[in-house]
């Protein structure tokens, strides 16, 4: 029924539940799974107030953070890949930098996604950048059904 499923995850407890369900659905329907990790580009505005450092110090900081984010993203995606391969689900990895809602909508359209799976936030737990996903934005613009786990 769903040829292509996109799961957007940050590896949090809520997202992990969504990952499991997405893999389950993909396994039952023989779907291709797209696992997506969005590095929130709002992150760069955190240092907006910083003004004293020379630009090379700031660049060194950004490079260090970028490395950290990609490492975290790879780790999260590796976990879901492992789980998917156990169920023989074909999986594609996407690491994207941007505003989460926009990035998700864009990937849905680009890959002709037929089901988008998202995890619910768990109280007291957060990804590295605290951010509340605006579901309305996705709901209004995404061209596929959304499953909120």
């Amino acid at each position: 029924m769903f040829k292509k499923i996109l799961i957007a995850t940050h590896g949090t407890t809520g997202a992990k539940k969504a990952e499991q369900l997405a893999i389950e659905i993909a396994s039952q329907h023989g779907s291709e799974l797209f696992a997506m990790y969005v590095i929130n580009s709002n992150w760069s505005s955190l240092t907006g107030i910083e003004w004293l450092n020379a630009s090379h110090t700031r660049m060194k900081f950004y490079n260090h953070m970028e490395k950290d984010f990609y490492q975290k993203a790879k780790q999260v995606l590796e976990d879901i890949n492992r789980a998917a391969s156990q169920k023989q689900v074909k999986i594609n990895n996407i690491i994207s930098v941007g505003i989460p809602e926009e990035a998700i909508i864009e990937e849905c359209a680009k890959n002709h996604i037929e089901l988008l799976v998202l995890g619910r936030g768990v109280k007291g737990e957060r990804a590295e950048y605290k951010y509340t996903l605006q579901l309305n934005k996705i709901k209004n613009k995404a061209s596929c059904p959304i499953l909120l786990v």
Partner: peptide, 29 residues
């Protein structure tokens, strides 16, 4: 030392992670 600027300068040296920086910068600001 001097808030966010100092946190940014020292982050690579102490191998700070994204979550450390988000917590620290948010609090410093």
């Amino acid at each position: 030392v001097c808030g966010v600027s100092a946190a940014v300068a020292v982050a690579p040296v102490v191998k700070a992670r994204g979550i450390d920086m988000a917590y620290s910068i948010g609090m410093l600001l």
